[in-house]
């Protein structure tokens, strides 16, 4: 297999992590208070949604939307919404409010928009990389958050501020790549 595709995949997971380094979808990660196990599950769904959305939005962009650029946001959001609802249906739960609000996030839309300028194979690998990166970010974040002892944190920093500091350390670690 082509080496550059592997690089695209690894960049999505590490150096170019969508949630941590590009802030895309970080609001979904921060507002999701579930355990590590549930985070892994949710992250897996997001990865699946990213890959399926990339498969659909790339031809949509290349063959249809290049004649009507102004429809990009609306068209992409529609596709992502349908894919997210379908994935949840297949996963066995009926689509509920919070899952859709979580799954239709900035990481998926940002990926689809960025993919518009690349080739098809690269787009799929970028989607897989971004998805795995999102999954890793979610799992690591929820695990770190569980380890923070709330009593030790100064009162004003409890909750959102300390969560932001956790992500800032994760992003410092990713700077190494």
């Amino acid at each position: 297999m082509d080496n550059s595709l592997i690089l695209v995949l690894m960049a999505g997971i590490l150096a170019n992590n969508y949630a941590i380094q590009n802030f895309l979808g970080v609001d979904s990660i921060l507002s999701n208070g579930s355990s590590v196990k549930k985070s892994l599950r949710l992250g897996g769904f997001v990865t699946l949604i990213m890959v399926i959305s990339a498969v659909i939005t790339w031809p949509l962009q290349t063959y249809v939307l290049k004649h009507a650029e102004y429809l990009q946001t609306l068209a992409f959001v529609t596709v992502i919404l349908i894919v997210a609802a379908a994935v949840e249906k297949i996963a066995g739960k009926s689509p509920d409010r919070d899952f859709l609000l979580f799954a239709v996030n900035g990481a998926v839309l940002g990926l689809c928009i960025r993919n518009a300028q690349t080739g098809f194979a690269e787009a799929i690998f970028a989607a897989a990389g971004a998805g795995l990166g999102f999954l890793a970010a979610m799992a690591v974040f929820s695990s770190l958050r569980d380890r923070v002892e709330e009593e030790e944190v100064p009162e004003a920093f409890r909750g959102l501020p300390v969560n932001l500091l956790i992500i800032s350390m994760m992003s410092l670690a990713l700077f190494a790549f």
Partner: peptide
Amino acid sequence: KAPGAYIVLAIVAAV
């Protein structure tokens, strides 16, 4: 860069 963004936002949120 990204880490600075998180730190500044964390401090503003704490305030």
